[in-house]
Design a protein around this nucleic acid. Structure first.
Lengths: 187, 187
DNA sequence: TCCTTAATTCGGAATATTCTGAAATATCAT
DNA sequence: ATGATATTTCAGAATATTCCGAATTAAGGA
């Protein structure tokens, strides 16, 4: 695929960005490419466009699928797999959040629960240290539970809730901080 | 500092965890150590306890401070700096979120704005591709703006809002999905 | 079946990150 | 100032990650 200058810099920025969020550059770039392309692309074309090895594309695509950010499609008369990006950003963000919760938060909660259980036979640990570990466990569990609840809302309700939050904030906060905003005015 | 078995595994888990979230192992472990310790520790003791180089502690501490997760304190009759972890997890989470927004989201928004501006002189890019880039820009800007609004709420209000969200979710969602929860029942 | 093309796996090269230890710098008491 | 202790900097060693390309496996036709 032929990249215009802007498409190229978009993809490069995403590469940077992705690596800060625990994806690697190639993975992030492939998502960015499919996202701007807006049309399904076969793996070899992705490799050609981004100038990376075909095998690297294969691996990266597996990872993107595990995040639920791309889907496999097919074109008639073409045996190759083609891939499209999820372009609805709400959905994409939710997929990432789900995956991170499942992969990182949930196991951490379990690990902490394990610590707490072990702590009962650890006579070298102080009560207050155990209390702090418990505080962390409870915090994560509460946050995770809240997330699951909210996650089940239909998107429309969620949007309402979010706008509500922003509105409450705008009504409540300015009294305290009349400091002028420097952003160019959002929304 | 003498670590009990549970404290040790707590710290090790955090090390793992941290690296998934873009911190390095040492940084995460130091935070974990200070968190369980609950008491200010000098850098050399941190190094000794975690068995890492003193210089590594120095660097990692600078990073933790940049995230706002630890503070420098002093003990009378001791010239050394001592460090304590922020133990309020709400506060800690907010600090991390603030920092990530500032370091990662905001620059990305700017980069996307740059792309959009450049796109006006890029005659090789399609209209729909520009529209998708704009969609991403707007999405991030909206999310960022919302975050800022909510962030300014006093913690008590925020907690209310969150509980409200969870309640709305619980009232609305189950009708659609009567599938039983498998968690042990939170809260 | 056999041949062609697509996709994946995997050893190790290339690259990037983290960590150490020595040297430099800073801080404070005498 | 001088010395003692604390902290930071930084070059390069140690480690971890990413990436390539050759080899392998899979999937279709003919």
């Amino acid at each position: 695929m032929q990249l215009s200058p802007v498409m190229e810099s978009f993809i490069l920025h995403w590469g940077e960005m992705g690596s800060r969020w625990g994806l690697n550059r190639t993975v992030a770039q492939i998502y960015a490419l499919l996202y701007v392309a807006g049309t399904p692309l076969p793996a070899d074309e992705i490799a050609g466009t981004l100038k990376v090895a075909r095998s690297n594309v294969s691996t990266s695509i597996r990872e993107l699928q595990s995040w639920g950010l791309i889907a496999r499609t097919h074109a008639i008369g073409d045996r190759r797999d083609h891939f499209v990006a999820e372009t609805d950003l709400w959905t994409a963000a939710a997929r990432v959040a789900d995956a991170r919760k499942r992969r990182e938060i949930d196991p951490t909660i379990e690990a902490l629960a394990g610590c707490l259980s072990d702590a009962r036979t650890d006579d070298a640990i102080g009560k207050d240290a155990v209390a702090r570990i418990r505080a962390m466990h409870d915090f994560l569990e509460a946050a995770g539970g809240w997330y699951e609840d909210v996650r089940e809302l239909p998107q429309s309700k969620l949007e309402t809730l979010i706008k509500m939050g922003a509105k409450v904030a705008r009504l409540e906060a300015p009294a305290k901080k009349p400091k002028k905003k420097k952003g160019k005015g959002r929304r």
